[in-house]
């Protein structure tokens, strides 16, 4: 499988090139827009967090910002990937949506061992492991469900009543699922002792070779041609 972006898999000074520049840009565009939408959404939608609206200059401003930021959220990351990182996007989606028995074993074992700071004998992961697959599927899936339902809620006069009414629970369920996944994703990248080094991949594009070998052995072998 030589399906890789030109730079991906290069080994230099004990590091492996893991992400493309466009992929990194897409990740952070998505991060900033999603978090802005989450905060404004919380101020609009949850009684206990109405005060967050003050950070955006009041609840009515928050409502406007929520709609304005929804546009780059819906489009920018997608465009960046399509234009600048189509190969890796395809590979990522292919891996994310391919599920085998070992993926379920991985997640079940990971949660009780590695996630809790213990060593676990886990099935070998490819570009991403099965927990990251869930994160990827939810991120892509809710990008669509949130965008479509949000669009219907934004222009209720344009759509039939049943669709507008259905958009609300879809929007609600989507952000709640995505947020619960995001909490775990952020915990692993910012706080978790063994995993937080992975953040370097998303800031520089490079990860430690040893980290890549132990966490993504199949991918490492595939893109570097070396033994893990």
């Amino acid at each position: 499988m030589a399906n890789k972006e030109p730079n991906i898999g290069i080994v230099k000074d004990g590091k492996v090139r893991r992400f493309t520049k466009a992929g990194i840009a897409a990740h952070w565009v998505h991060t900033v827009t999603f978090l802005t939408l989450l905060l404004t959404g919380l101020s609009i939608y949850v009684p206990a967090t109405t005060w967050i609206g003050n950070l955006f200059g009041g609840i009515q401003n928050a409502r406007i910002i929520h709609r304005v930021v929804a546009i780059p959220y819906a489009l920018f990351a997608l465009v960046l990937l399509l234009v600048g990182s189509r190969q890796q996007m395809k590979e990522w989606l292919k891996v994310a949506f391919t599920w085998k028995k070992e993926d379920f074993i991985f997640s079940a074992k990971y949660i009780v061992t590695e996630f809790m700071g213990r060593h676990g004998d886990l099935p070998e992961a490819d570009f991403i492991n099965s927990g990251e697959k869930v994160n990827s599927i939810l991120t892509v899936g809710t990008l669509f469900t949130l965008t479509i339902s949000g669009f219907v809620m934004w222009f209720p006069e344009t759509f039939p009543k049943w669709a507008v009414r259905l958009a609300y629970p879809i929007h609600d369920l989507s952000w709640l699922f995505m947020t619960s996944m995001l909490l775990v994703h952020m915990y692993l990248s910012l706080i978790h002792p063994k995993m937080r080094t992975a953040l370097k991949g998303m800031t520089t594009g490079w990860v430690d070779e040893e980290f890549a070998k132990s966490h993504y052995p199949k991918w490492y072998r595939r893109v570097t041609g070396k033994d893990a």
Partner: peptide, 9 residues
């Protein structure tokens, strides 16, 4: 939808 989402979070 709401209870399921809340349980997830």
């Amino acid at each position: 939808a709401r209870p399921v989402g809340n349980v997830a979070v």
